Amino acid sequence: MTKFKPALGLSNNHLQSILSSSGPRTFLEKRRAKQLLRLSERHIITTPQGVKLEGFLTSHTASSPKGLAIILHGWEGCADSLYVLSSGQKLLDAGYDVFRLNFRDHGDTHHLNPELFNSARLEEVAEAVKYLCAEFGGKHNVLCGYSLGGNFCLRVANIAKSEDIQLHQAIAICPVLHPQTTMAELSTGFPIYEQYFVAKWKRSLTKKLRHHPQLGYGRALKKLKTLDEMNLFFVDGYTHFSSRNDYFEDYSVIDDGLSQLAIPTTIITSEDDPMIPAGHLSHLHQSKWLSIDLQAKGGHCAFIKNWKFESWASERIAELAK
């Protein structure tokens, strides 16, 4: 198994996590992904339930690509997040067509659907992946996801056979395993993470309200200061769940959450992830289809290997996608 070894000065898990989606990496990663971005075509997918999701397809220049690689971003990320661009370019280089999918209310898609995003909306993501595999798929279709996108990736992989989704492999990077624990880590850990997600979530919710003022939470939103307060307000008022715990358990993948896996699935994660405790890996359903690639270092969705801010995880994904 390939081991991740960060360059001198890049071992700190918080530094890794912050660099994964910000700072000087922004310019470098967009330049490295120039081909992925230049050749991309925007698509709007409409699911059987009428949900509209946006994404970007980059077709490989070869006449016979290996298949389709679909990439799912993390919470409050988007199809242009740096880690998505990094892995997308590597998969394109490896011979795949690449589709970068935006979740509802991520990227610039707040106008497409009247209801708010929540992490329990598995059906629409699964339907989008099913459509993409049928419409653009090939001999080997791979689903990749980071963080919350990794969680969706695992849940889609779990139902791929039963729902006749033509997926052949799934790779999840630092996936959310037990949402209640991750929210607790964000709320009580290194303060910059909660501040980051509160600010991004508020910006997204404000943007949503401009397109759909009937949602009517504008005055309340200004008073909400923490992730706990925001989750309590929005789960109670804008989902069908009776409590936050019920909501978090709905998209947990521990215990029997992956009991239906029937395609090769790999989890890449790190022991020093400040948001996803590695101890929960032992609570996953044991399956011949599931492999765990646990690294000592790497932070959350980072694995920055050198001072060029290149991602070991992106290379590892391309290596695994056979």
Rank of each mutant, 00 (worst) to 15 (best):
R121K: 15
P114A: 12
E29R: 13
A7M: 09
L19R: 04
Q35T: 14
L28Q: 05
T58R: 04
Q35G: 00
H106L: 11
D108T: 11
H106V: 13
D93H: 09
L101M: 09
I44P: 01
K66C: 00
G23R: 05
G67Y: 06
I70L: 10
T109F: 08
L101Q: 09
K5Q: 13
V125H: 02
C78A: 14
E76S: 08
L28R: 13
R104H: 02
L82P: 06
T61F: 07
A120T: 15
A62C: 10
I44F: 07
A7S: 13
L10W: 05
L8Q: 07
P24Y: 07
P24C: 06
S64E: 10
E41S: 12
H106E: 13
A62H: 10
L39T: 12
L57C: 03
G77K: 02
Q49V: 00
H110L: 01
G9N: 07
D105F: 02
L19P: 08
F56A: 06
K30R: 15
K30L: 02
P114T: 11
A126Y: 01
S86M: 02
F4V: 08
L53G: 10
L82V: 05
K34Y: 07
Q16D: 08
K66A: 05
E127A: 14
V84R: 04
P24D: 06
L85A: 02
R100L: 12
A126D: 04
G77L: 13
C78F: 09
A7P: 03
G9S: 07
L39I: 06
I71D: 10
R31E: 07
S119N: 15
A33G: 07
L82T: 04
N118Y: 14
E124R: 11
L57T: 10
A128Q: 10
D108A: 14
L122K: 12
P114C: 04
L68H: 07
L112N: 04
A62P: 02
T47W: 00
V98H: 04
K34T: 03
F103T: 05
L37F: 01
D105E: 14
K30A: 01
T26F: 11
V98E: 07
I71E: 01
D108W: 00
L10A: 08
S64W: 00
N13K: 14
P48N: 08
T2S: 13
G67F: 05
L116T: 12
N13H: 11
R104L: 00
K52T: 01
S64M: 08
V51G: 04
K30Q: 13
V84L: 13
A128W: 09
S59D: 00
L36V: 12
R38W: 01
D97R: 08
L92T: 07
P24R: 12
G23K: 03
L19K: 05
D93E: 15
E41D: 01
L36D: 12
S40K: 14
L57E: 09
K90N: 12
R38N: 02
K52N: 12
K90E: 14
E29G: 01
R121G: 01
Q89V: 05
E123K: 14
R31I: 04
S59C: 07
I44N: 11
L28N: 02
H43Q: 13
G77E: 12
S22W: 03
I18V: 15
L15R: 10
H14M: 05
G95N: 09
F4M: 10
H106P: 11
Y96T: 00
E29K: 02
L85R: 07
Y96E: 02
D93Y: 07
H110E: 14
R42F: 04
D108R: 12
